[in-house]
Design a protein around this nucleic acid. Structure first.
Length: 316
DNA sequence: CTCGATCCCTGGACGC
DNA sequence: TGCGTCCAGGGATCGA
């Protein structure tokens, strides 16, 4: 599942493989995960993909209106605005199962390819997403700025003070805080669990109750884990592969995620799994003791919901 | 403010 | 082999 390291991996791959290419045509299939499909069909053709970078779990494909062939020509003139931020971008969130990668046109479309961008070198940048938990949006100017403002600090860049402030001013559980994209952008379930294990903090501990050294330990360990995971090109759990189709290797370094019932690498205690912040949370009950006064996190016992699900398949 | 519950969606695992 | 059922999870949303 793509979290910060996986998205960073894909973004780097795309930056080296498709940056500078111009989009010639767009084909949309299912569109229920796209904010404004018509805007994409209308605005993207003719645009150059100037640069691809990660923002939280999003990829930002920055678009340029300048002709792809002649870069600065007569651009930096007297009255042209100074280095404006990002004026125009395609935001892509991979959700759980999203893939964005260049293909040769002769490669057959897979079942869940929903968006195709034809590039000016003959390749196609394809977005594939079986579960459609991803998101795609074309945004400009103020709308783009305000969208990006909704997100919190980048965990790789956040300062000690800023991180501490964000965590210790909240009465939420630390696991929920780590997953909250308006607190930190980019952390997901795997790396939250891994960082909490390394910092020896129980996922249900209240943010405001973390000791100063716990908070700083968490920040440092989270950062180290994310950097190591980027180095190994992410964790391939379900079907994650980078923009070149290569899986990551960090899953082999997981200490708690997906290890329920197995022995803690530090103390040998069996790893447990509870639901915190609505997500499976893996931890060592010995290394990460239940905080005093923690609300009991309820495990399924009283809910046996069987849901009925009438659904209309939206197609276009 | 914070929480859980629910929904979205499909593939994979598992039981029979 | 082939069903049915459950589960995974990021995020939006709603009600408690």
């Amino acid at each position: 599942m793509p979290e910060l390291p996986e998205v960073e991996t894909v973004a780097r791959g795309l930056q080296s493989s498709v940056a500078g290419r111009r989009i010639l045509a767009v084909t949309l299939r299912k569109t229920d995960f796209i904010d404004d499909p018509a805007a994409i069909e209308r605005e993207l053709p003719g645009r150059q993909i100037a640069r691809i970078e990660r923002f939280g779990k999003f990829m930002l494909l920055q678009l340029a209106t300048t002709p792809a062939q002649s870069p600065p020509a007569s651009w930096p003139s007297e009255n042209s605005p100074p280095v404006e931020p990002i004026a125009e971008a395609l935001l892509v969130h991979l959700g759980m199962t999203g893939h964005l990668a260049p293909h040769f046109p002769e490669q057959p479309l897979t079942k869940h390819t929903h968006v195709t961008f034809v590039l000016d070198d003959g390749r196609e940048l394809r977005y594939t997403d079986a579960r459609r938990f991803g998101r795609m949006a074309y945004l400009t100017g103020a709308a783009l700025a305000s969208e990006l403002e909704r997100f919190g600090a980048d965990p790789l860049l956040v300062t000690k003070e800023d991180f501490a402030q964000r965590i210790r001013s909240s009465r939420s559980r630390i696991k929920a805080l780590l997953l909250d994209q308006s607190v930190l952008r980019g952390v997901g379930n795997i790396y939250a669990d891994e960082a909490l294990w390394k910092a020896k903090i129980h996922p249900a501990k209240i943010g405001a109750r973390l000791a100063g050294q716990e908070v700083e330990s968490l920040r440092k360990e989270l950062r180290k884990i994310l950097l190591k995971a980027i180095e190994l090109r992410g964790s391939s759990i379900s079907d994650f592969v980078d923009a070149g189709g290569v899986p990551g290797d960090y899953q082999q370094h997981h200490k708690v995620y997906g290890r329920e019932g197995r022995n803690c690498f530090r103390c040998g205690t069996k790893i447990r799994r509870i639901i915190a912040a609505g997500r499976g949370s893996h931890f060592c009950p010995h290394c990460q003791p239940t905080p005093r006064g923690a609300r009991r996190s309820r495990r399924g016992s009283s809910k046996k919901t069987k849901r009925n699900r009438p659904r209309a398949t939206s197609n276009r």
